[in-house]
Computed example of a mutant assay.
Amino acid sequence: MANWSDPRQPATPFQATRADATHTAAYDAGLRSYMLSVYNYMTSAILLTAIVALAFAWGGASSPAAAVFTGGGILKYIIMFSPLAIVFAMSFGQNRMSTSTIQAMFWGFAVLMGLSLSTIFLVYSGTSIAGAFFSTAAGFAALSLYGYTTKRDLSVFGTFLIIGVVGLVVAMIINVFLQSNVMELVISGVGVLIFAGLTAYDTQRTKSMYFQVAGTDMVGKVIVMSALALYLDFINMFLFVLRLFGSGRN
């Protein structure tokens, strides 16, 4: 016979439903807080990158950016390749690093990306940069919302998108030697599509990670690494949009 006085069991179906509703509400609140933290990190890093890039390129031909990137020397290569080194270090060393170390590397990466991307202010007009930025922001928001809300499993596209990134890099290296304007346009168009897909995919993956790390000490690291993935999606999509539609400085 069931023990209806057992406090471990809800006394009525109504109480069971209420307990489930309470658990679901708590989970939803935790997920919202987690996703908000990811987007706060990502947005703050993008703004930091933009501020550093603008400050470094301030003055045009007489700016520090122009001196570094047109004057030659090892410094420009350090600025160009150090963000990539940090991404690899964070990706392969996150399990051995503390959360505070991951966070410090993330902000350092954002600053170095700002120094590296300062050259766009020397090449493109301010109007083009602003137009590409806000167009990318609108597209990113829509794609990220889709990735968050869709019931479709986007992981099946992940491998194809990553292979697409590798192919894109190879094509860009080849075009360094070919200098083909048509190939440049094709690469930029494909690049926008690939990183648009990765935005939706990475958003869904970020959401699904909450199931695995909720209530553990890995949450802080996962938030930063997820913000890094979305940051890279945004920046790459922005750069390809700028190459497609941007106009040069007068």
Rank of each mutant, 00 (worst) to 15 (best):
L228F: 14
M90P: 06
A57W: 10
K221I: 10
G158Y: 05
V87Q: 01
F177P: 01
A132L: 12
I86Q: 02
G167A: 06
V222Q: 04
A11I: 04
F245I: 11
A55N: 00
L244Y: 14
G197H: 15
R18C: 00
G191D: 04
T99F: 08
Y146W: 13
M97C: 09
R8V: 01
F234G: 10
V176S: 11
N250Q: 08
A25L: 14
V182A: 09
V166N: 00
S180L: 05
V222C: 04
F238Y: 09
R8I: 00
S155F: 05
V52W: 07
G59H: 07
Q9M: 06
I162F: 12
G30S: 07
R249E: 08
T206Y: 03
F238P: 15
G114V: 07
S226W: 05
V192L: 04
Y148M: 11
L154K: 12
F211Y: 14
T199V: 15
P7V: 03
M105H: 03
P13N: 03
Y27I: 03
G147K: 05
A65C: 09
I78A: 12
M209C: 05
Y124S: 05
M35D: 00
S100I: 05
Q94L: 08
A214N: 13
R18I: 01
N175C: 04
T206I: 11
Q103W: 00
Y41D: 07
L185D: 02
A2M: 08
A227L: 09
A21L: 14
G191K: 13
D6V: 12
T70M: 12
L244T: 15
R32V: 01
G164F: 13
V176R: 05
F69N: 05
A130I: 12
F245Q: 04
L145N: 07
A132N: 07
T17H: 06
A55Y: 04
A196T: 15
V165M: 09
Y231C: 06
S63C: 03
S144I: 11
Q212Y: 10
S128G: 06
S62Y: 11
A45W: 03
T99V: 06
V192F: 10
M218H: 08
V166W: 09
S100D: 13
A227R: 08
V169I: 14
G197N: 15
L161K: 04
R205I: 10
Y41R: 06
S63Y: 01
S247M: 13
M80L: 10
F240H: 12
Y41E: 10
T150G: 11
I129P: 11
A196C: 14
Y146G: 11
D20I: 09
Y41F: 13
A55I: 09
L48P: 03
Y201W: 15
S247W: 12
G197P: 15
S33G: 06
L31S: 02
S128F: 06
A141D: 02
V241R: 10
M172H: 01
I51M: 12
N236R: 09
I194S: 06
I174E: 04
I223H: 04
F81C: 02
S188F: 08
M1F: 03
S208F: 06
S155K: 11
F238R: 05
R205T: 08
M97W: 11
L161G: 03
A29N: 07
Y210G: 02
V123K: 09
K221C: 07
I174Q: 05
V156G: 05
F81L: 14
V186D: 02
D217V: 14
L168K: 00
Q204C: 05
Y124R: 14
